[in-house]
Write a protein that binds this DNA or RNA. Structure first.
Lengths: 217, 217
DNA sequence: CGGGAACGAATTGTCGACACTTGGGGGCGA
DNA sequence: TCGCCCCCAAGTGTCGACAATTCGTTCCCG
């Protein structure tokens, strides 16, 4: 992105990641407009790759576009956040089921390792460590499920929740409970209980939804 | 798109629709490369909006991009096609359930009207009429389900099947059977049986998958 | 003192140009 | 004859520019 590395990787994916990061971290807030020129200068490139990246993110639901006004960080209503949880839960039922049927012994060990890491983070109430591990855990399930289109739509559901400041909804006390679910899910996979694994994972998401609802009241 | 209508609608959505059409109709075939310059000339515009539209379609899964080689129409393997059916079926279970719970009397009548139109097309073995009606029917279910993210991911699943020449898989005889499912689904919605509606819709998709499988053997 | 039109700055949507990369064909050596 | 390398055409990735549009502000009129 700096200067003279030519044509070995397109700018577009980099911009895409950068925008996702800015949104996830809160540098860009819901409803805010993307200033293409300013971002282009900041990243040391022209507006063309910026706009292409924005088009991508528009399709994933992170941005929206208004004619002649450019791209805006999408704002997500409470209803939409709950919509996402419902859909994620339903999709996870399938993902968990497929993953349980396809998971290998090595993968199971990797899941165990992740759970242990999360356990440590949960004990320390270290949300900053827990969060990415949690994302990794769920992404890995999708990967193991081995359904191309499942993997394709997952990022949209995952990243859109960033619009809602997900982190603030992870109450310190809930980390342990959340990881308890993970452990149970892995156990179900290990025992070959596909149906159960799917159900557990779905319920796990719905608990997250319930936590969200509780924080609003 | 012609000449001097300025800035009342962006070119990008138009290009997007045009590319989708070309793919659906078969003017662009799986694996084929999008020649940006040629398409730009053909549509009477520069390459910028073309590329932005391609980025969008890349995200939806209709195109893929290779560094320094541009955009290609995505090819879809048999496994991926079956993946889509599985995912569609699972998602439709939810969509049907939600739709049944939210549908209004007027909407039910609209569904009935659609079913009648499809019935006529089925009787006449007119796949060309049946197909868009069928797409409309399912899209409408998603709309009625009223889950924003459900509606967002649906087009990707819907359009990706175009890559597989869906039409050829609609065997003449299957139109009636397919519409029989539609009728049963609407009936379930009307009777307020949300669970049943979801199940019926899911099974309806799985029958499509089964038909696809049968055509290969 | 308030509302609205008109001006100007800021920003988007699109364009044409250019450097670089890729793929293919012809020529050269073996 | 076969294989390799070089060169060239085709085409992408990115850039800078420009017209059209939006937004904020000022100014005018009531």
């Amino acid at each position: 992105m700096s200067s003279t590395r030519h044509r070995t990787e397109s700018f577009v994916p980099a911009v895409q990641r950068e925008l996702e990061r800015m949104i996830a971290v809160g540098e860009l807030k819901g409803g805010e407009r993307i200033n293409e020129s300013a971002l282009a200068i900041k990243l040391g490139m022209s507006r063309a790759p910026i706009r292409e990246a924005c088009r991508s993110l528009e399709q994933t639901g992170l941005l929206r576009s208004e004619i002649n006004r450019g791209f805006f960080v999408r704002e997500i209503s409470m209803k939409e956040a709950l919509d996402i949880y419902d859909l994620r839960a339903h999709i996870c039922e399938m993902a968990g089921r497929l993953a349980a049927a396809a998971v290998t012994a090595e993968q199971l060990d990797e899941f165990d390792a992740l759970v242990e890491q999360m356990e440590a983070a949960a004990e320390a109430n270290d949300v900053g460590s827990y969060y990415p591990l949690n994302v990794d855990f769920h992404t890995r399930i999708i990967t193991v499920a081995d359904n191309h289109y499942l993997a394709q739509i997952w990022p949209a559901l995952e990243s859109s929740l960033h619009l809602f400041r997900t982190r603030s909804f992870i109450l310190p006390g809930s980390l342990r409970a959340s990881n308890y679910d993970h452990r149970a899910f892995v156990a179900a996979m290990r025992s070959g209980d596909a149906q159960g694994a799917g159900r557990l994972l779905s319920e796990h998401i719905l608990k997250g939804k319930a936590r969200l609802l509780r924080t609003v009241e």
